[in-house]
Design a protein around this nucleic acid. Structure first.
Lengths: 237, 237
DNA sequence: TAATAAATATGTACTCATGACACATTAAAA
DNA sequence: TTTTAATGTGTCATGAGTACATATTTATTA
């Protein structure tokens, strides 16, 4: 009765499409950005009647000729114009009834975007940034997906240098702390935060100062080269 | 060009099955057990010609009428007779070429089994326990899947009381330490290990002693009730 | 030009977890 | 009764986490 995954090629071909290929696979993206001391997520108006007026995550069906992990990059590029983005797989959601139109299992990814650097191509799409804290409800099970991704992001920022993907190349320690506070949604002690970050040894002192401020400027730092995400172009070389 | 996931119901139905439903979804299980101071994994001989003689993980295609997270429970029950098992989703693997017979995306789970308590029904199947450390090669990308699950298991045993799923109900601190050493593949200091475990407050002193040993017996402990996995029967009440 | 405001930059003291390590105790076997 | 082999606990040095205060620097303003 139980069909094994260990199938001979011929056997696999005999399996009825209606029985076993009647599940669609999608990816959904929790695209985080940071602006005005707030953590934001990029959402789109759902065009399903069942969820009219509600927002949902960006997503798409996985194509038969692309790697699962390539799909979210394609979605990002085609829907927002953004390339060279930090992405991480989080979890796969597959309840029977999670999609009203049929059986769709979705793999969730989170992305981190520097809003100021990557210009959104919002022209054609109804894409909007929403403060994470203001989001009460989303279409499908997307609120659950958002929460899962947010938890994963929170648990990673002290372990790995990922938060920097939300920021510009040069930043002060105050700005960095504000990003951490926005992600964790708590206030941090300035002196202890600096000590903790110093221990990680992620930062490069750029010997530059902030400017155009109405108070004492701070030093500017950058992420050390060895921790920077390789862009797809660099990887191709 | 890019098809959105936000589709009207009618629209979804128009999508050609050949285009978008030509991906099969499976689950694969990394079933860990513990015996003779070794961490083991339950494997089955692959019956694919491409992988003749090689071992692979237990897995199966997800059925259209079952939740994704239910599939691994069904596989475990039908293939091994084991019920009431600790399972956790780890990652979804979806490279185009990962399965020689076609496009199969698989979600990996790891399971923890008390080998002595759950009796294997090995009669019909060619199932065997293999020491994790002896496994060099597996069919498909199953070695990668095994490594990913092992890493996740290792990172969780100090955080959550999961290792106890590999053990009998009553155990000495020495036995517990041996399980941790087998999982982490390192030697631990007895005194420091006990201190760390004591802080977690996971254990219940059973006021019983080991017996039938040729040396001083140790106290027996059990996992505190509030940390025990609810069996499916209890959950149904 | 001097005083003020507002933020940067840094240090100390306490507590607690970690890791290396030693000794007395107990049960069984010789 | 002695030996063996493990259990059960304690100490000390080190490092991380946390609460907290003071001197410094820049731009602004009186």
């Amino acid at each position: 009765m139980t069909k094994s995954l260990q199938l001979k090629t011929a056997e696999l071909e005999k399996i009825s499409h209606l029985d076993y290929f009647n599940i669609a696979l999608s990816v959904d993206l929790v695209i985080f950005g940071y602006e005005n001391k707030e953590l934001k997520v990029l959402l789109i108006k759902s065009d399903l009647e069942e969820f009219s007026g509600m927002y949902s995550l960006l997503g798409d069906l996985v194509r038969p000729d692309e790697d699962l992990d390539s799909a979210p990059y394609r979605v990002l590029l085609s829907r927002t114009g953004m390339d060279d983005v930090f992405l991480e797989q989080v979890h796969t959601f597959g309840s029977i009834a999670r999609h009203p139109s049929g059986r769709v299992i979705t793999t969730a990814y989170y992305a981190l975007i520097d809003i100021r650097h990557h210009q959104l191509q919002v022209d054609t799409n109804e894409l909007h940034w929403h403060a994470v804290n203001d989001i009460k409800k989303l279409a499908f099970d997307h609120k659950l997906i958002l929460n899962t991704c947010l938890e994963q992001l929170r648990s990673q920022i002290m372990e790995k240098p990922v938060a920097f993907n939300l920021m510009q190349d040069k930043f002060s320690l105050r700005e960095l702390q504000e990003v951490y506070e926005a992600i964790l949604d708590i206030k941090l002690d300035r002196r202890n935060f600096r000590k903790k970050i110093a221990v990680k040894d992620w930062l490069q002192d750029l010997n530059e100062m902030e400017s155009n401020l109405s108070h004492r400027p701070g030093k500017l730092y950058g992420l050390k080269k060895q921790f920077k995400r390789k862009s797809s172009k660099e990887l191709a070389i």
